[in-house]
Design a protein around this nucleic acid. Sequence first.
DNA 1: TAGATTGTTAATCGATTAACAATC
DNA 2: TAGATTGTTAATCGATTAACAATC
Lengths: 207, 207
Amino acid sequence: MKATLPGATVSRLPVYLRTLAALPSTQTTCSSEQLAALAGVNSAQVRKDLSYLGSHGTRGVGYRIAELRDQIRKALGLTHDYGVVIVGAGNLGSALANYGGFAAWGFQVAAVLDADRGKVGSEVAGHEVESIDDLEAIVTGRSVSIGIIATPSWAAQEVADRLTRAGVRSILNFAPAIIDVPEGVEIRRVDLSTELQILTYHLKQQD
Amino acid sequence: MKATLPGATVSRLPVYLRTLAALPSTQTTCSSEQLAALAGVNSAQVRKDLSYLGSHGTRGVGYRIAELRDQIRKALGLTHDYGVVIVGAGNLGSALANYGGFAAWGFQVAAVLDADRGKVGSEVAGHEVESIDDLEAIVTGRSVSIGIIATPSWAAQEVADRLTRAGVRSILNFAPAIIDVPEGVEIRRVDLSTELQILTYHLKQQD
DNA sequence: TAGATTGTTAATCGATTAACAATC
DNA sequence: TAGATTGTTAATCGATTAACAATC
């Protein structure tokens, strides 16, 4: 396997993984053509992506599904569980905490934090909401490796600073703010209104 | 302005818009260098993106903030309001309905729908949850142009089919499913576990 | 004028995809 | 063998960015 995969390939691997999971369990092999159709991409792209994994399909046959699934999981680092801390116990934080898909992919919610004392102690998705004051202790003590920011925008940068100082190197930011993080920390942004605004651009184009 | 903007430019425009909004109100012009630093991109890229808009900055000075904001809004089609229907009143649907940023950018939640009769009639973010049976009537009657799918995966395709048949041409899909839509319908996917899995890839790379 | 900053070119980089030899 | 499908090449496409003339 190549030391680093192209970024576009990395972002398609999860899609392939979900596509494979949706295949009927009677099927044991799968062609790049079928995978491409289900994932909505080009079949040459599927083959190229998979070739980066050192995944060896069989010419004339296709890829063995079970083997391919394992290779993708390994490439993505999904071979063990990751502790996740959700910061912000509002509607979004609660929705995330309740998200069933977490555990299925090896993500364990280690804690749900909030700055609002009124929320601390209440229950969200089986987790007692804890105080953001304990962020550092929780990150260290519970081996948290991923932080999810579901706070208001104005609080996002400070939360990110505290997370990174505590050793978190991967952050998913749902607040509509651009956040600076030190070198070596990976941050991804999921922004609802950006998505909506991209949609409106395309709506406008159609008129 | 060019008839169509490069895709990458379209997805950066919302970021510029938010960056401009965060600038101190005493500032009236802004250089590509400053905008780039705040948005986290290259300044040549900012200038290129803005040149597509026919936006004319002033050499030696920069861009007039108010004018630039209006041009970006116009380019994105944010000059009028859009009706949005949220399908699925679970945690995620509720979080979306409660999302404050909607109205600020001209998105009006026209309805929140659910298939569960137990949820119909309950209140979510000031909206009485309505039955999914009325989807078509609501889309047509309330001029809905954007559909948000916040249902379980297995229901996502059918909801998309019903939305597009009712005339919706822009869909934001939060269900972790690949959905087929007819030509001319724009669909964007926001997938929490894909984002997390991309983060784990980078975590793995650092070890 | 001198300094600053745009708008645009041209080079580069990375991603996509058609095509096909290799081979099961 | 004949048919199917991979793995990879090479062409193409689109996006990024350094550099700088234009010009406020």
